[in-house]
Write a protein that binds this DNA or RNA. Sequence first.
DNA 1: AGATAAAAAGAGCTAGAAGTCTTTTTATCG
DNA 2: CGATAAAAAGACTTCTAGCTCTTTTTATCT
Lengths: 174, 174
Amino acid sequence: MDRFLSQTAEYALRAMAWMALTEPETPVLARDLSEGSGVPPHYLAKILRRLVLAGLLASQKGRGGGFTLARAPADILFRDVLAAVDAYPTGDRCAFGWGACDAARPCPLHASRSALATAFREWSASTTLASVQQGAENPSVRLSAALRASALRTRARARTRAIERPATKRRRSP
Amino acid sequence: MDRFLSQTAEYALRAMAWMALTEPETPVLARDLSEGSGVPPHYLAKILRRLVLAGLLASQKGRGGGFTLARAPADILFRDVLAAVDAYPTGDRCAFGWGACDAARPCPLHASRSALATAFREWSASTTLASVQQGAENPSVRLSAALRASALRTRARARTRAIERPATKRRRSP
DNA sequence: AGATAAAAAGAGCTAGAAGTCTTTTTATCG
DNA sequence: CGATAAAAAGACTTCTAGCTCTTTTTATCT
């Protein structure tokens, strides 16, 4: 094992982190986000959808569309992001296998398990997307550069396509 | 999502917790452990094997055999149990997708992620099996009762089998 | 209107986790 | 020794997270 959270949860945090590091209000393409963050494009699309449904992102279809943060980074908890992709553990089922298990009638594992649950809840409820914006070496500089590069690639792709298709109109099978 | 750890990790902790609550030195049958803890019997067998290989349990084959704790509960960390079933996250891969990411060159998610990792490590390295033995309502009483009942069922099974097979000797297909 | 560009939807694939079943090995008892 | 009782081994199945591919919908631009 090499990670604490599920792959999907990590992808969701990664995507939101990227969003928090881009120019606010400017729509970001799923494709650029995928290339920049390394999350598989189609899988990222599904994750983004869930983040939209959870009210953390806003999406705009069609030309000039893309994704934008729905709220200020400081108002988006890690917990919100995890919950959006169903990666926020409720921990309501007893680890010991008991039907009922609470503070009143704790199972032998209850106390230890609660300690972990509490630590996790405090972490995810006290950490916001704003935390990714402050770095010792100002990582946003590097990130902006990466995204700029990505945007340049996007324009390059457009140009390439324009060249590949010289004046002839193509139509897909009817 | 409803749990913090993988199903296997939870089963491993559950099994070890049961072991810590039984009479020391007295071998516990995998079957009784399964019935008592609710872990599927054959799956539990595999988990127990891993715990033996990790040096946390001792096993004895044949009649009168079973499983016993290899060390005192206070000397068995939750971390040890999780590591035995490969459920101890190393967290060495960057959550942001960077190849290199450490305290020197942290990714934007590094600090937050480290906070979680630290909390988890401290929890799993400071919690031992002894923690399951101390409960406000002395859960070991209830557990001992449950195990006693389980042991009784085992003897009942033996009796039943003895009755089902009255003096005739059966042999499996050659 | 028509071309284009974006998100959205949905069907399907794959590998690994979780769980089952059967057989084999090893020990003990009578 | 032979019956029995336990763990151990291993093949096999099932389910689901993660991932891919294709098509559809919606918006914008000329």
